[in-house]
Design a protein around this nucleic acid. Structure first.
Lengths: 148, 148
DNA sequence: GCTATTAATGATAACCATTATCATTATCAA
DNA sequence: TTGATAATGATAATGGTTATCATTAATAGC
């Protein structure tokens, strides 16, 4: 995983400053498995960083998303959730989402097959519809064990 | 496509009443290609149905979604968009979404291959994670011709 | 190490899609 | 026809996200 030095360099390269809020948010994302909402992050950092503002969390997440550092999932309730984009391809995954309680499960089954197809589709769509493809999302919606 | 008699029967079977707002919304969805937001629908019906309330549009869309009549896409700007679920399987498609302006393109390329993989994945995930799978979503995000 | 420039921050108001409330109306089974 | 009640419309409330703006802090140039 990246350390603060690498992050700092990456920020500099994009004319962005390396600040305490950004470091603490990246740090939290780095040591958290799941998908965090802006409020999750805001509340989690409250004890160690009481001065942090919610607006800064949003701004930082948007920046990280723009830089391709963070992956954004808009769940069906319209709330954005964020996760560090893993450096190694081994960790690429897709989502299984409970439409009742919003639980998000990362699954890694069939990812190889999925990515093959994704690559093929991506190329074809980019050409046919004249899009610049930035990302893809494969999700299954259903009811989890508790909600079924 | 369904006519009002079929819809009416389907509503009755679910203890739902057949009303003017519901008929007009279904009618509009039936003769519109793209994905409509609640406000789109509200504004489109304003001339022919001035009394229609926005809340009713939301309630109707939620009902149609619950009944499986309508497909919902939550775009990355957090706005819900709705489309009549097509009766014939031939029309099954996935989405190409512009992350800047929200444009949604339905594509039908590689859908056969995608659905094969989807079926396989669905079965495995349902078993492994004890989910009841209701739906899936495959989306590509990028910048459209105008926004690139 | 200073200092000027200006990006970033925090507090808060504004925004906007969606949901809840509630009195009124309309559907439909009996 | 009528009674029970589902559905509606108007509007207030909610909640996530964005805009505003004065203040603070990071960085490049000296």
């Amino acid at each position: 995983m990246y350390g603060r030095h690498q992050w700092r360099r990456r920020f500099r390269a994009n004319a962005c400053r390396w600040t305490a809020p950004r470091e603490s948010i990246l740090d939290l994302l780095g040591r958290t498995r799941g998908h965090l909402s802006a409020k999750d992050i805001y509340l989690s950092l409250q004890p160690t960083f009481p001065g942090l503002g919610l607006a800064t969390v949003y701004r930082t997440l948007e920046l990280l998303h723009r830089l391709g550092i963070v992956q954004k999932v808009t769940s069906s309730d319209g709330q954005g959730r964020y996760q560090l984009r893993s450096v190694d391809q081994q960790d690429h995954h897709h989502h299984l989402i409970c439409s009742r309680c919003g639980l998000i499960v990362d699954y890694r089954d069939f990812v190889r097959e999925e990515l093959e197809l994704v690559k093929k589709t991506e190329d074809a769509l980019a050409k046919k519809y004249n899009f610049v493809i930035q990302d893809h999302s494969i999700e299954f919606l259903g009811l989890c064990e508790k909600c079924r």
